[in-house]
Design a protein around this nucleic acid. Sequence first.
DNA 1: GTAATAGTGTCTTTTAGACACTATAGC
DNA 2: GCTATAGTGTCTAAAAGACACTATTAC
Lengths: 226, 226
Amino acid sequence: MQWTATNSEGYAAPAALATDVVVLTVREGHLLALTVAREADERALPGGFVGIGERPLDTAQRKLHEKTGLEAPYVEQLGAFADPGRDPRGWIPSIAYLAPVPPATVVPDPSALWIWARGDMPLAFDHREVLDAAVERLEGKLWWSNIMVGMLPAAFTLSEARRLYEAIAQTRYDPATFGRDLKATGLIEATGEQRATGPGRPAAMYRFTSNRPEWGAGRRKRIALA
Amino acid sequence: MQWTATNSEGYAAPAALATDVVVLTVREGHLLALTVAREADERALPGGFVGIGERPLDTAQRKLHEKTGLEAPYVEQLGAFADPGRDPRGWIPSIAYLAPVPPATVVPDPSALWIWARGDMPLAFDHREVLDAAVERLEGKLWWSNIMVGMLPAAFTLSEARRLYEAIAQTRYDPATFGRDLKATGLIEATGEQRATGPGRPAAMYRFTSNRPEWGAGRRKRIALA
DNA sequence: GTAATAGTGTCTTTTAGACACTATAGC
DNA sequence: GCTATAGTGTCTAAAAGACACTATTAC
């Protein structure tokens, strides 16, 4: 039995408006996406229904907070997914969001599971399509925007950034060139702090200058082809 | 009085799902957007409601056909606009689409009016925001994708293409460099035909190799800053 | 001292911009 | 011939990649 809705003008209306959040991070060189259990052997992206009078972005941020405890990170809209049949419960368009989060993020939800974002694990609804779009968006904006402001800690070293960028672009960057080019985007600044972890010269720390979606000066970087 | 809807589970639901289409073209060096009359002194982007069981992209293409008689051109999703209050009629999320069309396009609708896309004419709903997003998308993808396949005729000369690219990027391109770089995207091919218009050597004709959204090899091109 | 990580300088390759030059048309 | 548009070749400038070298830490 499907959910249905009729509006006050007498026409069929969507049964609800959903949001889905693609929470991405990198661990051990792999790009991971957060999934939650749905039914037997079926996993889905975290998400929920938009309440009446609620901004869909707020719904997405609320869901992100519930799942990860994270407050601030970067969230950007990926697009609408609204083809008929995408949700077996009825006519439920979904607005998908992309939220990169730091590798250290702990997810309290016991049903949560990080999966390989580039794998082929089947997902509920049209969530595989949504996830693929999210990966493509992250790759495409990597060197052109501050999209990584959500995945890097508030202050980070260039080595730390380089490891994340390498995992996303699926390539290796020369440390010297990487630092030069990331600074050249104009999106980061030195904090003045330093951090030493074990042996070796302490590394200078940097931060992104903005949390809101911004475009950088842009350098072209090679992304490994599938 | 606002439209409302309640679903079969007893919860408030969106009153409808809309699509809005940003139809863009270039005339006399200016980027233009198609608007239609709505109420007294108020203009809006063309659009309409998604029917139950209909793909929103099909709704957008249907509306494009009704307004311009155009069948094939490139249509890509811009995103969802669904903040509360965007439509005075009630809770009506909209999925916006971007459709570049050829300069020669004739719009049969007598209420249709081309406005300067970069102007500041106020529009109904949140359509100014939608239009601004469309312009930014077109600028951003200009040199990286086949997004111009909709705005150029099926076969075009490099000069013809250059004039459109210049209007969108708001800059001047060296004819030699322009041709070299457009070919280098790998997105166009020679048709083998030639066309002479008045004096001067006849120009070779080219076409895009695909009508579906594609990414090119990509060259960086400067976009004039606002 | 050695090993490990961070950071600088600079040479080479690739890409983009500028512009002189050639080609083919109408008149 | 002259003018107008199309197209080629090549020099220069800017950006990206490679890599040698220096710097600062733990041990």
